[in-house]
Design a protein around this nucleic acid. Sequence first.
DNA 1: CTGAAAGCGCTTACAG
DNA 2: CTGAAAGCGCTTACAG
Lengths: 339, 339
Amino acid sequence: MKTNHITQQDIADRLNVSRITVSKALRNHPDISAEMKRRINKAVEELGYVPNLIAKQLSLQKTNILGIVVPDLENSFFAYLVDSIIDAAKEHNYNIILTVSREREVFEKNNIMNLIGMRVDGLLVCVSQETTDPRVFDYVRRVKIPLVFFDRAIKELHFSYVAFNDKVATLEALNELISRGYTKIAHFAGYSSTSIGNERCSGYREALINNKIPIREDWIIEGGYEIDDGIRAFEKLYAGGELPEIILAVNDRVASGAYKAIRKTELKIPDDIGILGYGLNDSARLFSPTLSIIDQDPRKMGRIAANLLIDEIQGISQNSHTEILIDTEFQWNTSILKR
Amino acid sequence: MKTNHITQQDIADRLNVSRITVSKALRNHPDISAEMKRRINKAVEELGYVPNLIAKQLSLQKTNILGIVVPDLENSFFAYLVDSIIDAAKEHNYNIILTVSREREVFEKNNIMNLIGMRVDGLLVCVSQETTDPRVFDYVRRVKIPLVFFDRAIKELHFSYVAFNDKVATLEALNELISRGYTKIAHFAGYSSTSIGNERCSGYREALINNKIPIREDWIIEGGYEIDDGIRAFEKLYAGGELPEIILAVNDRVASGAYKAIRKTELKIPDDIGILGYGLNDSARLFSPTLSIIDQDPRKMGRIAANLLIDEIQGISQNSHTEILIDTEFQWNTSILKR
DNA sequence: CTGAAAGCGCTTACAG
DNA sequence: CTGAAAGCGCTTACAG
């Protein structure tokens, strides 16, 4: 089935002018008389002309497309992020081509090469957990396509990078709790091999140390990032005897697991034990009682990353390896008793 | 900052052949000798040639791009859906340009016109709640770009359409519960003005009628689609005196509201009252007890819609207004006592 | 105020 | 087995 599009030539034919005149009129070039422009715009309406952006892009050597690579769209964090990137892109008249790596290095590489083939004006990428080979990124640098990493980066490559200031955020949240008299705080940690797990855990340790609270290694339970990991962690903690006042869970799924496990005991949230997690406001509200969180607003990150990239594309930002660490806020909800 | 790309001409120059020879060799045309192809492929490697897809698209009059319009990516239903569309598209070597309408008719229209400008090979659209004006879609038909509606459609336009069989799914789920002896079932409904609210509610009514259970209008509480609507609905129900055995909530946010409101009373889920919702498996598992759902698998819908569109693009599917209603499954989780 | 020429990087039908 | 010609739909620098 052949599509059916009008071209500038069609308009020119109908009006008996050259297609250059049409092209100029459409871009409101001063060369063309008002009368001519009027006639041409009328014909555009009548014929239903929609300019072929592909041809325009080829001619201008500029696509106004941003290429995005995310590990996984089913993670609502990334969904929100992409959503906000689309918003920011649209404001600057960019379209986006979205690709997903499924945390696989091969897919990520293929996606990036494909986006380069599409001649995107810039790349926004959150590297997969597997990624170690820098060669694709070397190629990106060689063809001089601006690239901004978000949330996760290969630091040694010195592209621009936007992420949350997890460690500081953790410090601040715990400082506040400690200043209100909470001292017994456990941590259901992620893997210390991942940067997220690492940053959060070291924020936890530092907060305790700063406040001269001894660190109980048996209260740092390293598990994973899923609901079941939260359940297992709480069971282990519960079996251990003495309970903390507050559990700092490495994300909302682990927090959900903790909720489930706690409900199986005689304990009540927040009366007997409080829970603090990391995550999105919207997911926190689904919990009952609502989960207190170190609020990671993906929309903020998306906007900042997109705007930074667009600045680099347009040559506004000279510095091609800016690092931005976003401050996040502690949101004290009903999963922790106010003191 | 100018990007830095190699062209077929560059390869031809280096090898002292014509660029046509290069073009043919790259597409493995039988015209070209094996030796020549070997030399050209070697040069491709050395120079790091990545074909310019924009130029290819213009030449072939085919972009291998699917345009997507969703109302909102922050709704995880759509995020999953887009994710699965990307999967299906990739398998057939299509890229996707993703746009978001924010439930606004104007944005939707602009997005579609923009995608037409990009000369996408086909469109996947879930219309906004506001949309009434068919003109953009008339234009889509006129330029002969294949379009498939998903989840929500303007039926009169007779484009292809993929959705869930909500009414039948509701009937089946309730039949099962009723056959296990549940008869007192309330419904926290959405608005009857929306097709989702309508389908689900009429499934509810029909199930009761089929099973000769009298319909209590005071047990059909029409609210909205948010957490607070679920809270309000339960408060109203609770104030009303007699309580049902089961609440059928129109979505997971309303179900979450019901959970919250119930927790404020002496009632226990599932011992005193059971909850049934519509939604995704993943969100259902975050509830404790896990929410029983009429499982709406967005990945299924995404794949079916994408494959249907690709069939239409490739002229495999003759029928340009296929309607597919997807069966959904009842998932009995711990929010309803097994009988 | 209007238009002819050359170009963006690719492909395909045709000729030798 | 190799290449010259024409084309996809646009833009821009130049000439009249």
